[in-house]
Design a protein around this nucleic acid. Structure first.
Length: 800
RNA sequence: GCCCGGGUGGUGAAAUGGCAAACACGGCGGACUCAAAAUCCGCUGCCGGCAACGGCUUGUGGGUUCGAGUCCCACCCCGGGCACCA
C-alpha cells in the first residue's frame, strides 16, 4: 500500500508495513521468481490540504517537497523498490487516467448526480466526514455542525453489493478483513410489506394532495391492471421479521420521507413541520446516536395492518433513517428494543406475538422479547415456531398482494464529490443546451489550476467555483458557453486503481497496457493495515469489477492474496503526536543501520498481530547480525568440510522453518530459528565451515539485505545475492535428528526424559522407561492400567 | 448492543491436544581490563530442598480427555471495528 506523504515524514508504522512486504518480495526473488515491488505516493486529499492551509504553504509546493523527503527516507529502509515505476496521484500524467476512469463509469451509467445530506461546518466552511464530527461539533474549531443538502456525484457501488459479497468466499484474504467487508456490505434478507393508508380526513379541496390523489384515482380507473393507486396511498416498509407483523402496532417514517407531506392531517401539520425542521438541522452523527432519547410526532394518519386489518397510527421519528430500506418501518414494540422504547415513551400499544419458554399469549411485556419462540396472538399462525413463520407469513402476505421478498444492503452508494481544492477535477461540463456533458477523453487531463486562495468558504461549493477563468469553457458538444464541474473527486478514487497503473507507469497513451497488465496483474500479494479493511479495499474491488465488465481487463479481483499486518505500539501505548512517543525511523536508521532496524521490527512480535516497540529490544537483532558477521569473516578462516552431525540436521531444519515462516509472514519465529542455528554453529567455540554459514547468509538476506550482499561478495560471488535463485535446498530426511528426547509420564506427570533412537517401538520404549529409577519409584505399589504411546514423543503410564 | 482480535515469567514473546516459557531483552555472577564500554561464559517462572527431587503455574469458574495455554460451556478484563441498518 502506497503511503500518504505527510509533512512529518515517514512514520515507523509505514516502515513496518513496507519491511514486511519487502521481506516477502525478496524471499520470492531468492527462490528465483520475478518480483515487481513498486512504490508511490497517495498525495491528494483533505489531509494535505488542511496541513497546507495551516502551514501557509501551497499544496503544489508542499507535496513535491514532502515527496522528496519521503523518497529520501524510503531509499534508506532497504526495500527493493522499482524506482522507474513510481506513481504520484497528484501528477497530471496520473490523474488524467483517474478522470478517464470517472468517464468510463459515467458512460456505463454507474456515475450519477443526486442530492445528499452532508455535515457542514459553518465556521470552517466545509463539508465534514462523519469521522470529523465529534459530539455534534467540528473536530477542528468546535462549532456546531449543521446538515446541508448538496448535489453530489455518486458511484452506484450498491449494484455490485452481492458480487462484492460473493467473491469474498474465494479470495485469499485475512479472515478479519473479509469479515469487516461482509459487515460493511451488511446483507439482510426480509420482506417489503405494504400498509395501506386509511385516510381519516378529506384533503383540502384544491390542495396539492387532493389533486394528486384525484389524479391517482383517475389513473387507477383507466389502468386497473397496474395497481398504482395502492402504491401511492400505501406505506412500504422493510423488515427482517415478517413473523412479527401481527404485533406491528404503529408505523414510523423517517422525517424526510416524501409521503409525510401527503398524509399529515391539518391538525398535526404544525408539529410535524417543526419536527422535520429540527431533524434537518441536526448533524448526521448525533442523529444516529443510539443512546439519545427517542423523539417523534404523530402525523394524524392511520394505516391498515395487512395481517390484522386493524388501523395503526403513523408517526415520524429520527431513529428511522431515510437512506436504509424504504425509509419507513413497521414498529413491533413487543419484539424490537427501539420500538419498545418508543412505544413506552409515547404510550403506544405493545402486543406480544411471540412467546418464549414459560410465556403465554397474555404474559405481560416489560421489555422487548427479541429471541426465537412460538407465535401467539397471530391468528391462524398461532403455535408456529417464529423462525418457520418468517417464510410462511411472507408467503401468505405475498399471495394477498401485500408483500414481496427483498434483500437489503447496508452499503451506500459511494459519494465521490468533494467541495475542496486538492484533488482531480471531475471531468464534466454543464451546458444549458446539452445538459451534463463528459469532457472528451482526448481533452484530458482537466488540469487543476494553481489557485492562490484555495480556502473553502461558506458557499458550500468548491474553491474552483471562484475561478471564473477556469470554469467558463465552451461546451464540448455545441460550443456554447458552458461551465465546468467545480468539485474534485475523492482521494479514495485515486487509490482505487493505482495498482493497475504501476507496471504501466511510463505509458503515456493508455492508463494500463494490456500486455503488461496481463503479465503482472492481478496483484499476487498485497500487505497493508487493517484500517483500510473497508474503504480502500472495497473501492478497489469495485473498480476492478467495473473495469472487467467494461472489457478493459480480464480479472475481477485486484488482490488475490491480502494479508493485514498488526499495529505497532510504543512501550504499551499507542503512538501519537500528543503523547510525543512517535518513532521516527531516521534516527534509528542512523544509529543502528537499516539491517538491524528492519530485523528488529520483524522480530518484536508476530507481524500479523503487531507488537510493542522498545528501544532496548534492538540489542538482540544487533548482536545476532554482528555475530553472524564475525562468524563468516574473514572468509579465509572458514573450514571447508561439509556440514555434518547436529549442525547439518539443524541447518536443514532451519532452512525449512525459515521458508515456511516467511511464507506465513511469521517473521519473528523465522528470525528466532536463524538465531538458534547460529548459536548451534558457534557453540563451544568450534571451527566453523563455510558450508554451514553460506546458506545462513541467504536466509538472512530478506531481513538484512545490505549485510547479506556484502558477505555474499566476500564469499566470492560476483553477482548480487538476489540474482538467480540462491535460496538453499533442504532435505527433509536430514532435517530430523536420529535421536529424540523421549518423555515418560506417570499419570500425565513427567517422571523422566531420555534420549531414544527415532522410530523406537512401544515395547522398547516401555522397557527403557521401566529401567529408569525415578519412573520405578512412582510405579511402586500401584498397578499400570493403561499405556499411552505417542511415537517419538512420549509414553504415559496410567496407574490407579 | 453486535462482529473481530487478545489475556502466558521482571519485559517483548514461543508452543500440529503430548516436556509451558523457544528466541531475545533486562537482571545477577564470572572472564578480559588499572577502570569502564564492547565482547565472551554461566545462572535466571514461583515455592520447598545442600542436592536428588517434589509441589505450584498460561485472566476466572466449570467440563471433555490418559493428557488442555490449545477443544467445549459460562463469565471477567484489554485492544480494534461497526452501530437507532428495522
Amino acid at each position: 500500500m502506497f503511503p500518504y506523504p505527510s509533512a512529518e515524514g515517514l512514520h515507523v508504522g509505514n516502515m513496518y508495513a513496507f519491511t514486511g512486504a519487502d521481506i516477502y518480495g525478496r524471499w520470492k526473488r531468492l527462490t528465483g521468481e520475478q518480483v515487481f515491488e513498486p512504490i508511490g505516493f497517495d498525495a491528494f486529499g483533505i489531509h494535505s490540504e488542511n496541513f497546507a492551509l495551516k502551514s501557509g504553504t501551497h499544496p503544489m509546493e508542499l507535496i513535491p517537497s514532502n515527496i522528496r523527503n519521503f523518497t529520501r527516507q524510503l531509499t534508506r529502509i532497504g526495500a527493493m523498490y522499482d524506482w522507474n515505476h513510481v506513481v504520484d496521484t497528484t501528477d497530471p500524467a496520473y490523474y488524467r487516467w483517474t478522470q478517464w476512469l470517472f468517464l468510463q463509469l459515467f458512460k456505463a451509467g454507474l456515475a450519477e448526480k443526486k442530492e445528499a445530506p452532508v455535515n457542514w461546518c459553518p465556521s470552517c466552511h466545509t463539508v465534514l466526514a462523519n469521522e470529523q464530527v465529534i459530539a455534534g461539533e467540528c473536530e477542528r474549531c468546535g462549532s456546531t455542525v449543521e446538515q446541508r443538502v448538496l448535489s453530489q456525484w455518486f458511484f452506484t457501488i450498491t449494484d455490485y453489493a452481492q458480487r462484492l459479497l460473493d467473491n469474498l468466499k474465494w479470495i485469499d484474504w485475512s479472515d478479519s478483513t473479509k469479515k469487516a467487508q461482509e459487515n460493511w456490505i451488511g446483507r439482510s434478507e426480509g420482506a417489503e410489506i405494504w400498509f395501506q393508508i386509511d385516510t381519516p380526513w378529506e384533503a383540502e379541496a384544491g390542495s396539492e394532495v387532493a389533486q394528486a390523489v384525484d389524479e391517482a384515482r383517475q389513473y387507477h380507473r383507466e389502468h386497473p391492471e397496474d395497481g398504482e393507486f395502492d402504491q401511492i396511498l400505501s406505506v412500504s416498509v422493510f423488515t427482517t421479521r415478517p413473523d412479527t407483523v401481527f404485533g406491528a402496532t404503529f408505523l414510523v417514517l423517517a422525517p424526510e420521507h416524501p409521503l409525510v407531506e401527503w398524509i399529515t392531517t391539518p391538525e398535526c401539520k404544525a408539529e410535524v413541520e417543526a419536527y422535520r425542521e429540527r431533524a434537518a438541522a441536526m448533524d448526521l452523527v448525533s442523529r444516529k446516536k443510539t443512546d439519545k432519547e427517542k423523539t417523534g410526532v404523530f402525523t394524524g394518519a392511520y394505516a391498515i395492518n395487512p395481517a390484522t386489518h386493524e388501523p395503526v397510527p403513523v408517526w415520524i421519528a429520527d431513529y428511522v433513517l431515510m437512506e436504509y430500506g424504504t425509509g419507513a418501518i413497521m414498529a413491533v414494540p413487543g419484539h424490537d428494543e427501539r420500538d419498545f422504547e418508543f412505544a413506552t415513551q409515547f404510550g403506544l400499544p405493545i402486543t406480544r406475538v411471540i412467546a418464549g419458554a414459560g410465556d403465554d399469549s397474555t404474559s405481560p411485556m416489560t421489555e422487548a422479547f427479541v429471541d426465537e419462540g412460538v407465535l401467539v396472538n397471530s391468528g391462524e399462525f398461532d403455535g408456529t415456531p417464529s423462525l418457520a413463520a418468517i417464510s410462511k407469513i411472507t408467503g401468505w402476505l405475498e399471495e394477498a398482494g401485500f408483500a414481496e421478498r427483498r434483500v437489503n444492503y447496508r452499503l451506500h452508494d459511494w459519494c465521490i464529490s468533494r467541495q475542496r481544492y486538492w484533488g482531480p477535477p471531475i471531468p464534466i461540463v454543464y451546458c444549458d443546451a446539452c445538459g451534463t456533458v463528459p469532457v472528451p477523453e482526448d481533452q484530458l487531463p482537466v488540469v487543476l489550476p494553481h489557485v492562490d486562495n484555495y480556502k473553502p468558504d461558506e458557499s458550500g461549493v468548491s474553491p474552483l467555483a471562484r475561478v471564473e477563468s477556469w470554469y467558463r469553457v465552451p461546451c464540448p458538444e455545441c460550443g456554447a458557453e458552458a461551465r465546468r464541474e467545480t468539485d474534485v473527486s475523492d482521494t479514495f478514487l485515486d487509490s482505487a486503481w493505482y495498482f493497475l497503473r504501476y507496471p504501466s507507469a511510463n505509458c503515456d497513451d493508455v492508463p494500463f497496457r494490456a500486455d503488461i497488465t496481463k503479465q503482472w496483474l492481478p496483484v499476487d500479494m498485497y500487505i497493508g493495515g487493517e484500517e483500510h479493511a473497508v474503504l480502500h479495499l472495497l473501492y478497489s474491488r469495485f473498480i476492478t469489477m467495473v473495469l472487467k465488465d467494461l472489457g478493459h481487463i480480464d480479472f475481477e479481483e485486484p488482490f488475490l492474496r491480502f494479508r493485514k499486518h498488526g499495529l505497532l505500539i510504543k512501550e504499551g501505548s499507542k503512538m501519537s503526536k500528543s503523547r510525543g512517543n512517535v518513532v521516527i525511523p531516521d534516527q534509528y536508521l542512523e544509529e543502528w543501520g537499516a539491517d538491524t532496524f528492519r530485523t528488529y521490527l520483524m522480530f518484536l512480535g508476530p507481524y500479523q498481530e503487531g507488537g510493542d516497540f522498545r528501544d532496548q529490544g534492538l540489542q538482540g537483532p544487533f548482536g545476532f547480525l554482528h555475530r553472524l558477521w564475525d562468524t563468516v569473516l574473514p572468509v579465509e578462516a572458514l573450514g571447508t568440510g561439509a556440514p555434518s552431525g547436529e549442525v547439518e540436521q539443524k541447518l536443514h531444519a532451519t532452512i525449512r522453518k525459515v521458508r515456511d515462516d516467511i511464507a506465513n509472514l511469521s517473521y519473528n519465529t523465522a528470525i528466532a530459528a536463524m538465531m538458534e542455528y547460529l548459536n548451534v554453529v558457534r557453540a563451544g567455540n568450534r571451527k566453523v565451515n563455510r558450508g554451514e554459514v553460506e546458506p545462513l547468509v541467504v536466509l538472512v538476506a530478506p531481513f538484512a539485505p545490505h549485510m547479506a550482499e556484502e558477505l555474499w561478495q566476500q564469499l566470492g560471488h560476483d553477482a548480487s545475492i538476489f540474482t538467480g535463485s540462491n535460496w538453499p535446498a533442504h532435505d527433509d530426511a536430514r532435517a530430523t535428528a536420529d535421536t529424540v528426547e523421549f518423555v515418560v509420564q506417570v499419570n500425565g506427570r513427567v517422571r523422566a526424559r531420555m534420549a531414544m533412537a527415532r522410530g523406537i517401538d512401544q515395547d522398547a520404549a516401555h522397557a527403557a522407561a521401566l529401567a529408569d529409577d525415578n519412573v520405578r519409584k512412582h510405579l511402586e505399589g500401584v498397578q499400570v492400567r493403561k499405556v499411552i504411546f505417542v511415537p517419538d514423543r512420549l509414553l504415559n503410564l496410567v496407574v490407579g
